[in-house]
Design a protein around this nucleic acid. Structure first.
Lengths: 239, 239
DNA sequence: GCTTGTCTGTCCGGTTCCGTACCGTAAAAA
DNA sequence: TTTTTACGGTACGGAACCGGACAGACAAGC
């Protein structure tokens, strides 16, 4: 990860884009553009959060890891959100592993600056609290989906969520990585990917999933996809 | 549900108990004691939240229901917390079903009063934001647990969480209800309950689970139990 | 008492998914 | 180029859990 030059608005990150000009102006001098690398670890459990990240065309995963080696993704952060939300909740440390899933650009900000602006009780506070609500709903829906819905449907949903965040049909992902996110076997992902390919929804190459029929996938996934998406759109003021 | 006389501090609800006297004094005139009934519905999805509830010795479940009839609990609220947290996040409507699981006393408060106090940016704000963080961690851990851990362990964890909240070893619960919370079959709960009984951890009567060996259960459950409990204790300032 | 409804124990075939392993191939490194 | 590594397809026995059903046991109401 390396800092680049300053980035200019309009940001493609929705939280930053939703800020009124004056509020944005206070943050602007402190925003740093970053290019993230695939698999890069943003936070680790119990370690302090020093910066928050506003993804632009990247996707970041919050992953729960168990002591026996299991892992599942419990939340996703893309251009609609911000990492490290617990900082504004008064807990400047991460509770989970947070890592870059699909690399691309992001903007980062020191926690102290964020908190100062948050405590002005202005637009940023309102936006971040609403975002917290949507994130909570996403995690809750994931909890339900993990229990009630089968793996093929969950994989399809996950691919659509990736697509929404990086705004591309080309997703550089290995089966191994998807297996970790969904909490299933690598071999399971391979089998499911084939069936989705037979339906014409995706193409699966080595290290690259290409979405070929978004509408087909949308018809295949469970309700969880639309529920979470609607919640984020409302948070966004785009309901 | 029927309003009772006013309740006097010290409250056994930890959020109310943590308030400084002056902050509490502003809320006190508006607090109403309630006795809740088993199975009573507190909120429904998309309906406005008019009151928030501070359980005292009751336990309230946040339940996700799918269109095909499935259901799972995604969060639990007891004396450590408050229902309707989304109100302070700027969304005064529920996203899920919220219902009384183990009945007993609680205190309720109109949302408007809560919000006014929250926006003073004093102790209540800080306490509720930290509580939000712990709740988020609980939901996230549930998402992981639902995917990675087997039913017997999850049931054991759930019983311990009940115990912590109502502070009693006697839990008036039917297998049917537990099945809904865990997202498994009723028959599955019956089978698991028997094995836990054979181990001497619990006794299962008709509509009543009695915890007989708390330590045994604690040794049986997955790490998720301790992780979530630790997070709430820290929120509580009891770390 | 008897009846009725609720709750629990038990069973069975079937499905999903796991754990593990092996091999071929594509990509990267030497 | 050759070698090495990473990735993906495939297979197989087994475990966990489901859907559905049935009957016995208990509790409440008549």
């Amino acid at each position: 990860m390396s800092p680049n030059e300053k980035i200019q608005p309009p940001f493609q990150n929705r939280i930053l884009a939703a800020l009124p000009p004056k509020d944005y102006a206070r943050l602007a001098p402190h925003l740093q553009a970053f290019t993230m690398e695939r698999g890069e670890v943003i936070y680790r459990p119990n370690l302090p959060i020093e910066h928050v990240y506003f993804p632009i065309a990247s996707m970041i995963s919050v992953v729960a890891v168990t002591s026996d080696g299991g892992s599942v993704e419990v939340g996703v952060i893309g251009r609609e959100g911000m990492t490290g939300i617990s900082a504004i909740l008064g807990v400047p440390r991460s509770t989970d592993d947070v890592m870059v899933q699909l690399p691309d650009s992001a903007v980062r900000l020191e926690v102290g600056i964020l908190l100062a602006e948050f405590q002005r009780a202005g637009a940023l506070q309102q936006i971040l609290l609403r975002y917290t609500h949507a994130l909570m709903k996403m995690v809750a829906q994931t909890a339900a989906c993990n229990r009630l819905h089968h793996a093929p449907v969950r994989l399809a949903r996950w691919l659509l969520m990736c697509r929404d965040r990086v705004q591309s049909n080309e997703l550089p992902l290995t089966h191994e990585f998807m297996a970790m996110m969904l909490g299933i076997r690598r071999a399971g992902v391979s089998e499911i990917a084939l069936t989705l390919q037979e339906k014409g929804f995706i193409r699966s190459k080595r290290g690259l999933i290409t979405i070929q029929d978004k509408a087909g996938l949308e018809g295949f996934v469970c309700e969880c996809y639309a529920i979470v998406k609607a919640e984020f759109n409302q948070t966004d003021g785009r309901a």
